[in-house]
């Protein structure tokens, strides 16, 4: 079953810049893939289309059997809740603890606080940050902050996990550890799509590669 599929998808900005042109690919349920290419090749745009942060100019994006063009503005939140996302610059909130950062998606979904606390601790445990749940993210290292972002992305057990340059500022050792974490989620059945320009790292992973070049998918 296809979890994510792009059918002749193009994205042209009003400035005239074509970020994606005629992209076709299908990611099966439970599959894990890397999206690579130079910066500016359209990796982030592709992820934004999946998250409905942008809409395609042409073509169809299907996520979990749902045509995204059919979703109205008011259906976007529910769609985003079904996807876990790790953002490029962590996107953490420094006015609250690690625990509260991870709990945010559950609060938004209206979970019972006890249930939520249990899930948050489970997620923090998976990324190895359980002992630091009471700390402020600012007190933690970049690698740890990235892992908070990952815990937040997986805390409500999404079917799809997206990550945009999750190893951007990390040293090779930490990067690989984070990638192993993603593979572990994938083994549990989560469909994973990771955008990364770190080719050396990506090649070491036994995963499918989708390569973008100037908005075109040259390998997938």
């Amino acid at each position: 079953m296809a979890m994510i599929s792009f059918e002749r998808v193009s994205k042209k900005y009003s400035s005239g810049h074509e970020a994606l042109s005629n992209v076709n690919f299908t990611l099966e349920s439970g599959e894990m893939a890397f999206l690579t290419g130079h910066s500016g090749a359209g990796k982030s745009t592709l992820l934004k289309l999946i998250l409905l942060l942008e809409r395609s100019s042409q073509g169809q994006v299907m996520v979990n059997d749902q045509r995204l063009s059919d979703l109205g503005r008011h259906q976007i939140p529910a769609h985003r809740r079904s996807i876990g996302t790790v953002f490029q610059n962590h996107r953490l909130l420094f006015d609250r603890t690690v625990f509260d950062n991870v709990a945010l998606p559950l609060q938004i979904s209206g979970y019972d606080p006890q249930d939520a606390a249990r899930r948050v601790r489970a997620a923090l445990d998976k990324v190895g940050l359980l002992p630091k749940e009471r700390m402020n993210p600012q007190q933690l290292s970049t690698g740890e902050q990235q892992r908070i972002g990952i815990a937040r992305a997986i805390v409500n057990k999404p079917k799809i996990l997206l990550a945009d340059e999750p190893t951007g500022n990390l040293d090779p050792y930490l990067s690989e550890e984070i990638m192993r974490l993603f593979m572990e989620f994938n083994r549990h059945g989560t469909t994973v799509l990771i955008a990364s320009h770190d080719l050396a790292l990506v090649r070491r992973m036994p995963c499918r590669l989708l390569t973008l070049e100037q908005g075109k998918l040259i390998r997938g």
Binding site: P77, D95, L104, P105
Partner: peptide, 15 residues
Amino acid sequence: DEIEVAKLVGATDAW
């Protein structure tokens, strides 16, 4: 920041 992050992880306008 909080509003943006909340919207990113699927908060409704009402929330």
